[in-house]
Nucleic acid binder design. Structure first.
Lengths: 154, 154
DNA sequence: ATAGATTGTGGGTAGTTGTGGGTAATAATA
DNA sequence: TATTATTACCCACAACTACCCACAATCTAT
């Protein structure tokens, strides 16, 4: 029987339907603590994918943003770019969230998607893009990758 | 009477049934400390086999992952590749875990499997594959093997 | 040696999950 | 304001999974 760790792990293949909806894996929905009230915040990932935060995790980010002084131009830019693509969502009766066209375009999503648990957030990928990015990063930085593996994998 | 050391040792032959279930050897189940709550995390091994972690061991890994900054692309890649194949599981009433098709394919499992204790984790192998890998590695690195033996075997 | 418990393996079934589409309410556009 | 597009909320259904029971083989203890 599968269970959960209150973190997001594993990958799942889903489809974005014609209305721009994607399923959130049932396993991930179960991971959400009650104080999330079934709410996520979706935004641009640093990679070309959609990041999906449970709302309480996102609120931590917002809180840190609040503490940045608006006197500094770079702070203002950072706050703007972090927040401008963020949309809070509740999933529907079938467990799906409605993506925005903006984010669908940014991540290049098209029918087949890969949803990946990233411990405290979720990523939604176009599988093709992920393959490219992965290859590129490993080429650039494979020694750094090996160092991480050596430190962390038991 | 046999007893145990609270570590995983020994090898056992089991079958993956048509539903993708494998037994966890009763001895290994008894080794789990109470705080594991009968939960394992299965994931890709670095060899073509399935790695099975007791949940508390896995959580140590997750914790290290959480402390990696998402600003670095290689960090994101590492977290993603570490977590994306990981699935938490509880074994069923008969002591079996349900493998994912993804991992069955990765490890090339097919009916007969070899379950091997690896001190703090468990490996599930296709016996044929293990033989090949073993032979290959010994050929490449037999002097390194001897060095390790010299250091470690008393 | 024998009875009882444990262990490994198989299969049935009810409930869950992913996916599609319909319709009414809301928002956007002309 | 009238018309069109978008969104929210249903219902439907096939595929899959969790949970249950069964049973033979092995082990344990008296």
């Amino acid at each position: 029987m599968t269970t959960n760790l209150n973190t997001f792990t594993g990958e799942f293949s889903y489809t974005v339907d014609t209305k721009g909806r994607v399923n959130i894996p049932a396993k991930f929905r179960k991971v959400l603590s009650a104080d999330n009230e079934d709410t996520f915040v979706i935004t641009r990932g640093m990679d070309p994918c959609v990041w999906v935060y449970p709302v309480v995790v996102w609120q931590k980010i917002e809180n840190d943003l609040k503490n940045l002084s608006s006197l500094s131009a770079i702070n203002r830019t950072f706050v703007r770019n972090t927040v401008r693509y963020a949309t809070p969502l509740i999933y529907d009766g079938q467990g799906r969230i409605q993506l925005t066209t903006n984010l669908i375009n940014y991540a290049g999503l098209d029918k087949k998607t890969l949803i990946i648990g990233m411990v405290n957030k979720i990523e939604i990928w176009n599988p093709e893009r992920l393959k490219e990015i992965d290859k590129k990063n490993m080429k650039i930085d494979s020694t750094a990758y090996d160092d991480l593996a050596e430190k962390i994998i038991i």
